[in-house]
Nucleic acid binder design. Structure first.
Length: 677
DNA sequence: GTTTAGGATTCG
């Protein structure tokens, strides 16, 4: 908890005004430091504290604000050393005479791991035997699991949580030395287990004997005595003799199939593959001896310098990062140094849908960071100054100098030389926008493993075959969706446009213009055995005779919606009106001896407002009289009508044509479906 | 001072 630490009112002789007395609270680890160092009456300078409203101002009469000191905000407490002459103005932080206090050391006691007991909170040193790098738990905090060992031959599993991942130990590899303050020992599954207690803090050291004794921590103040130095160095020496702890690092050139390993590398490029996977292109300066499996992703989807990606293509490996690791992957920036923990090197036989020409497909090596946190799977961002990255950089630099010609322009060089992350220049951000606009509208998921075939290779082979292509869309038709509906003949496979109203009207007017109407008097206005006829003059127009032949049905009370009519002399508007009223409308003409169908460039049947057309190539129109057979059977299906009339029915289809090109050739692809009627 | 996770491979 927190304790009110300073209370000037009680320490000064004369009473102070409200505004000159402020409550100051000390939190966490700083409590210990201050508790043992500061005495009443000391003069201090405080930096980087939090200012909050005082909850007690109305009661204690002090300042309405309060100061909150904690390690998390980076607070530093300066105390005037005894030797320093008292400054003229205590608040003047710029005074050069202020120096960091000699804080009296707190006597921390470190318990050997074989001496920990349930229920106590202790401080320990240990060597990391196993760890899971911090990851976001299902709860609110980051979590990290660390197993430590020490020369007492005991081991301790530590389960650590923190809302701030920086407060968890910064472990890079097994063998690192850690110091934990305030871990609580408890029992779980009949074993002792440690969990971080309030005020927990951790220091982590490189496990290499003789390496600098600089601890990894974000803490601004920590106690580290010469005793601590000896302890760390002792643990380093003790662990370095243990082969189960001291494992060699594996580089891409040494990777064996089916191996799980930790890879320290630099990120070249990144792409979201689908909802469950992110692609990382990484390199460590060495060449993997196996053919590399490559995740097919659109170049436009790759975040990273296209030039670098191209130049490093032989050294870079594709790593697929799945599921829970995607969140961590999203934080990564191109140029960063990483350790990917428990990376799976897997040999994969290339899958190809095309007929195999080569006899033995060569297995390719793919790298996967599987989902979950088993075996410490995860990604750690490595600072440029740590020894693993120093070593990595030497490897990257030697790879560059080995191939100066092809790698000389590498923009990642800037990162190597300056140790800074690349800043997005105007040029690259413009390029990014351009690429962004080229992004696929649709992404097929889970097809990463499917090989694509160059278009020319498809053109050289004989159909039918199935392929996957990756190509640029050069053109597509039609541009408006409604234009994608066409008429299709299932017999001759021809496609044609749906005649528009103007065309139909023109045909109808040509058919029934006064000069051309030589209606056969024999069949005019005669009821036949199977239809009744009515003829009249069209109103208000040029002389035009219109005729309706109503097909008789068995029932006397036939409703128009279920009736079939044969019509003559109709305009386009007439056809629309009649088709709304009657179930089936069949446009005919009686210029010849018998009632016959019209030119097939207009519909031969309008059924429930659906306009049916026939194929000019494949139809052999019969006199309309043949419909009499249907009037007897009573089946007036459009297909039955078409059949007896000798008409090859055209169907409505959705068709889009795409023209693709991939540099090797170009290909038209049709997207095709039956239209819903 | 709650919960989370509590070492223990893999859908891809």
């Amino acid at each position: 908890g927190h304790k009110p630490f300073f209370n000037h009112e009680s320490t000064t002789q004369q009473p102070m005004s409200n505004l000159s007395t402020i409550n100051t609270f000390v939190f966490g680890k700083l409590v210990d430091d201050c508790e043992h160092t500061l005495k009443q009456g000391d003069k201090v300078v405080l930096s980087k504290f939090l200012v909050r409203k005082s909850a007690s101002a109305s009661k204690d009469g002090r300042h309405v604000l309060q100061l909150e000191l904690s390690e998390e905000t980076g607070t530093t407490v300066f105390v005037y050393a005894k030797s320093v002459k008292e400054p003229t103005a205590a608040h003047n932080v710029n005074l050069p005479i202020i120096e960091r206090s000699k804080i009296r050391m707190h006597d921390y006691i470190y318990i050997p791991l074989n001496k920990v007991k349930e229920g106590i909170t202790v401080n320990v040193y240990g060597v990391v035997k196993f760890f899971k790098p911090p990851y976001l738990s299902q709860g609110t905090d980051f979590s990290s699991t660390v197993t430590i060992v020490d020369p007492s031959n005991a081991r301790l599993n530590c389960v650590l949580f923190s809302g701030n991942a920086d407060l968890l130990p910064k472990i890079y590899k097994v063998g690192d030395v850690v110091r934990f303050h305030r871990i609580k020992i408890q029992e779980f599954n009949k074993e002792l287990q440690a969990i971080n207690a309030p005020g927990f803090s951790a220091l982590t050291f490189d496990g290499t004997p003789g390496a600098p004794l600089k601890p990894r921590t974000t803490s601004k103040s920590y106690q580290f005595t010469s005793t601590d130095q000896r302890t760390v160095e002792e643990l380093r020496r003790w662990a370095s003799a243990d082969p189960s702890i001291h494992k060699p690092t594996i580089r891409l050139s040494e990777v064996k199939p089916a191996e799980y390993f930790d890879l320290t590398c630099q990120l070249i490029a990144k792409a979201e593959v689908d909802r469950s996977a992110v692609l990382l292109k990484v390199w460590d300066g060495t060449q993997c001896p196996h053919p590399l499996w490559q995740v097919p992703v659109d170049a436009s989807a790759l975040e990273g310098d296209p030039g670098d990606i191209h130049r490093l293509r032989t050294l870079a490996v594709d790593v697929l990062v799945y599921d829970n690791h995607i969140g961590a992957a999203n934080f990564l920036k191109v140029g960063m140094y990483l350790t990917i923990h428990n990376l799976h090197a897997k040999l994969m036989t290339p899958t190809s849908e095309k007929p195999s020409i080569s006899l033995d497909p060569v297995p390719e090596m793919g790298f996967h960071l599987h989902g979950g946190t088993s075996y410490g799977r995860g990604i750690t961002i490595m600072p440029a100054d740590c020894s693993a990255v120093q070593q990595l950089k030497r490897s990257l630099e030697s790879a560059l100098s080995a191939d100066q010609d092809s790698l000389g322009d590498l923009s990642l060089l800037d990162i190597l030389n300056t140790s800074k992350r690349p800043s997005a220049s105007e040029a690259t951000s413009a390029a990014r926008i351009e690429r962004c606009q080229q992004e696929s509208a649709t992404v097929l998921t889970a097809h990463q493993h499917i090989k694509t075939t160059p278009i020319q290779e498809i053109l050289d082979q004989s159909p039918p075959q199935k392929y996957h292509i990756r190509a640029k869309l050069v053109n597509y038709e039609p541009r408006a969706l409604h234009q994608s509906v066409k008429l299709y003949c299932p017999k001759c496979c021809s496609l044609q446009e749906i005649p528009n109203d103007d065309d139909i009207d023109t045909v109808l007017q040509g058919l029934y213009s006064p000069g051309s109407t030589a209606v056969d008097p024999d069949i005019q206005s005669h009821d036949t055995a199977w239809y009744k006829t009515a003829t009249w003059e069209a109103e208000g127009e040029r002389q035009r005779q219109t005729t309706v032949h109503l097909v008789k049905t068995g029932e006397e009370q036939s409703v128009p919606e279920h009736s079939t009519i044969l019509v003559e002399g109709m305009s386009l508007n007439d056809l629309y009106r009649l088709s709304e009223r009657f179930g089936r409308v069949i446009p005919t003409s009686s210029r010849t001896k018998c009632l016959s169908l019209n030119d097939l460039s207009i519909p031969f049947l309008i059924e429930d407002r659906k306009w049916h057309y026939g194929c000019k190539n494949c139809s052999d129109p019969q006199p309309v009289n043949v419909l009499q057979s249907l009037s007897q059977s009573g089946t007036w299906e459009s297909s039955a009508i078409a059949k007896v009339l000798g008409v090859q029915l055209l169907s409505y289809v959705f068709v889009m044509k795409f023209t693709f090109a991939d540099g090797s050739g170009s290909l038209d692809a049709f997207l095709w479906n039956e239209a819903v009627s």
